[in-house]
Design a protein around this nucleic acid. Structure first.
Lengths: 169, 169
DNA sequence: GACATGGCGTTATAATGTTACATTCGTTGT
DNA sequence: ACAACGAATGTAACATTATAACGCCATGTC
């Protein structure tokens, strides 16, 4: 879940960067499984978007994805958004509201789980962590106000362990 | 030439609907105090934006604010964004990331406090609640990953007590 | 084959947010 | 009073993010 180069042991497809590449095979398998379960195709465009996000290991803007995927044929933003919609349904990709950016995630979240996204202001890397304490706190405030929560958004902006140690690297 | 802010505010206040408007006087006082403390002016535009948000009591998009504030002179979005920037610094206005909307808030949040925004999907109303449990949970996940949090974003999408009781009303 | 469904490719547009710059306003120094 | 300066404004243009509309094509079903 915490995507760190040391932890991504299956870095067979790891890019040359020092970035936090995620397990591309695992995330692709999950997307394929979701597609199969819904009887919808895991199409080429969906694979390409997911592969790019998995290789990058960092959040990317939709237009940035379109740019990177363009070759002779220009990939339009709307095509990326459609692929992202599928990938988010499949649970393979999340959207960072604090950056309007999308990133691949190789961890399968339980349906009731509350996940915290920690976004590094300096290097842009994202760490995820599920927190029962946060989940309990959210249920608590909702209960006291009679609010029926459907979907939580929890993000932390700050500095990751690497960047906090080496400022402005 | 110079618009009287108090008359403007009370006029808008009169148009507040059944949904709960916030304490316009209190929030305006806080904005004025912040401005004084920073030796910057609490200008007419800033007063107008804050008064509108306070009277509305609900989140509004920046362009919607610009629209409502326009009379003979068209108020441009950039002017609204500039006013919102000041008001957010003053702690009188918050931005809802889940809706890209802005709303006035009449309680003063402590600097270390973690505030949860509960946004009703049906009526759009926002409730705020500070939660020590959530704050503790966030500190916990940050600590285990070595992350240094600076700013938390916590929002719940769901149904408020009113709308949950009377669906789609 | 006829046909319904869904994804793709393309164009256009909506919605949100920012940059640039000249002007005006308020304060400050003289 | 008046010049000078920084901040806030007014205005236009631009940038970014996201969606709508529509025809084409591939796939599966009858």
């Amino acid at each position: 879940m915490v995507r760190d180069p040391d932890q991504s042991a299956s870095g067979l497809h790891a890019e040359a960067h020092h970035h936090h590449a995620i397990d591309a095979d695992a995330v692709q398998s999950r997307a394929r499984a979701y597609a199969t379960s819904k009887s919808i195709p895991f199409t080429s465009m969906r694979q390409r978007v997911l592969a790019l996000l998995a290789a990058s290991g960092k959040p990317m803007a939709a237009y940035e994805i379109a740019e990177k995927l363009s070759d002779a044929r220009r990939v339009q933003a709307v095509q990326v958004y459609r692929a992202l919609e599928f990938l988010q349904e499949a649970g393979c990709v999340h959207r960072l509201v604090s950056r309007s950016a999308y990133f691949a995630c190789d961890h399968l979240h339980g349906s009731g789980e509350t996940v915290v996204f920690m976004v590094c202001s300096q290097c842009g890397a994202v760490q995820e962590a599920a927190s029962d304490v946060v989940a309990r706190g959210l249920r608590g405030v909702a209960k006291t106000t009679g609010f029926k929560p459907r979907h939580p958004i929890v993000e932390l902006e700050g500095d990751c362990a690497n960047c906090a140690g080496e400022p402005a690297g």
